[in-house]
Design a protein around this nucleic acid. Structure first.
Lengths: 357, 357
DNA sequence: TATTCGTGAAGGAACGTTCCTGCACAAGGG
DNA sequence: CCCTTGTGCAGGAACGTTCCTTCACGAATA
């Protein structure tokens, strides 16, 4: 099948033969290396161009010993379920990773998180960024064992720390305390029955957030109000809200859903934000700024995270010492949707602007 | 720097030496090829595992002659400007491409559409999918000249058709007639002053859509009402709407913007959808179904497009004949936002459902 | 004139696989 | 006992680059 292509492809030696010089000369002429007079250089370049020669990327990479390719495993981005549930976050993360990688001279491969065995190891990667791994994620361990530098969640790295010489570097959030920050804010704003919408996944972020919520409730002797998504898509988010709304005076979503649509849905059930229901969304969706009222958001800074991850990964790949990891703080933007009217700004976060500039 | 890693890496020969067998035997034992007794096979596998051997992906690829990697150039996805303007479409396209590629056993590399010269040619790709290329897109020509199979817009392929032996395959929409379909629908629904929001780019989709709109207006002797985005982000979309709204009785957006937010904005200007302003959005945002009223959408089927593109690309890569291209029709879903009340369903599209199931 | 020196270019070893070819040896059939 | 057949494995050539080493040769120097 591919034979015709294979043999038709002009190689370095073909150029060499056609130009009447050696492989070395062709290589030097085209790469600007070696010591060649301009005449020879131009002659070779002309011949190469006339033959339509293009160097074989794989061969150069083998020679070079690196591929300048990093993998990004964004579990929820590629796998079918939950695609929409967390869309904006993963999209921004992947996009920012690609951009950051480009700056460092690397390309990005979107890794399948599902798939047969360790098929990802067949890809010629210099390093991998495993975003928000699930519990006992096999990818992290596989790559580390294969000697491929990994950047991921600190917790995921710890799990496989034993037995691998290379530790892997991390980019982390303290998801638990971010959730607490939101919960405390809602409590300060007067909420007594905070409900949470979560996804049914073992991803670090969800697990830690939910655990923090449960602890927070337990500390206060309150009964947790939590709804798990039954499937992907907006409808499931709205359904989850529906199941919680009657018995809550504040809503904290851990999954992405259109802020505007959430407000619509809440309104449909006869509730009003923020008058008798406070709302905070974990989301990267910028529309939260423009709704009426603007919605308070908890952001996990995909741009910053991606940049840090790539920087750490590249350091690791290129053998520089650098940091072992970076700990970020989530960005909690308090807006009108979670400030009870007449109460003024909440105590602990009084410095934050209530409305966007 | 990297030398320690380099020399530390266990190679096939190291396993061979340690196991007291030849390279061939190791290769056969690990790949399940050749004729070896189970004992030898297991012995080699044990030694390989104990040394932590992982085959070098690049070397296998060189040997194999292919990389099982395809590139996706989604211009607007990675480049900074307009990132948000067309988000959902590109996201779904890239995601669907990744998924489809995986099914065929290929990985996906996100290609930089900006960057020095032809840096993309350094990547070891078996094929490329160039999404919605701009006019005179260099990538298409570069890859075709390099003998790398390309799937792209038919128009972009035509531009560079001369001189390259391989033609490239295409996945196409008739953007013009899709736009006309929407415009005709709006006219049928009673609109006389249809305004359009467009992005300032030379991407095929935008150019052809705008051209169709201008022609459509000219045919009717109507003055075109068109606003170009001044920059990325939702705010610019809303600003564009603001500039058009006073003088229009129908709005057709060619750029993605949150349907819910568009409705809010329109309402803010004292207009009402669909009573005195009809609205159709080009978007993949599923929230359009859930707004009040639900918003009519024109979808360019990213999932179907991606699947077809990957299938064509894989055929091309693996030397199968297959189709030269696939022409799709955009999916126009008429909902309440573009049906004037009391007028009943529009003539030409009476069969389409007015509300989602 | 014999020795350096710099320039221009060729030869060939790597990079780490896969896989084609072929050898040694044992078992079976004539 | 010789010839075939099959099994178990080793050797080494590819894949297409890059780059280190070597070499020839003319000019400048001693």
């Amino acid at each position: 099948m591919n034979q015709s292509d294979r043999s038709a492809r002009v190689r370095l030696v073909d150029v060499a033969r056609a130009a009447g010089v050696s492989k070395t000369t062709v290589s030097d002429a085209l790469n600007g290396t070696g010591r060649l007079p301009a005449a020879t250089r131009e002659h070779v370049q002309r011949v190469a161009r006339s033959l339509g020669y293009r160097p074989n990327a794989t061969a150069r990479l083998l020679r070079a010993g690196h591929t300048r390719l990093i993998g990004v495993a964004a579990r929820e981005h590629v796998e079918t379920p939950w695609v929409y549930a967390e869309l904006a976050y993963f999209v921004q993360l992947v996009t920012a990773t690609t951009r950051a990688a480009l700056v460092h001279g690397y390309g990005v491969v979107l890794l399948p998180t599902t798939g047969p065995g360790d098929c990802w190891l067949d890809m010629p990667l210099d390093g991998v960024f495993v975003v928000d791994p699930v519990e006992g994620d096999p990818m992290v361990g596989d790559f580390l064992a294969a000697g491929v530098p990994v950047v991921s969640d600190r917790r995921a790295l710890k799990e496989v720390a034993s037995g691998t010489k290379e530790a892997g570097r991390w980019v982390d959030f303290d998801y638990g305390s971010a959730a607490r920050q939101v919960l405390d804010h809602l409590e300060d704003a007067g909420a007594e029955r905070v409900a949470v919408v979560a996804a049914a996944t073992t991803a670090c972020f969800h697990q830690q957030s939910v655990d923090a919520y449960l602890d927070w409730c337990a500390e206060r002797g309150r009964e947790p109000r939590i709804a798990y998504l039954q499937g992907p898509g907006i409808q499931n988010v709205l359904d989850a809200v529906e199941g919680l709304i009657d018995d809550a005076d504040a809503l904290f979503t851990l999954v992405e859903g259109s802020p505007a649509l959430l407000l619509d849905t809440i309104r449909k059930f006869g509730r009003s934000v923020p008058d008798d229901l406070l709302l905070v969304c974990t989301t990267e969706d910028p529309t939260a700024l423009y709704t009426d009222p603007p919605v308070s958001t908890l952001s996990y800074l995909p741009d910053e995270t991606a940049q840090a991850a790539v920087a750490l990964l590249v350091d690791s790949i290129e053998g520089r010492a650098g940091d072992h990891g970076r700990l970020f703080s989530a960005d909690f933007q308090i807006r009108a949707s979670s400030v009870a009217p007449g109460r003024g700004p909440a105590r602990r976060t009084a410095a934050s602007p209530l409305t966007p500039g």
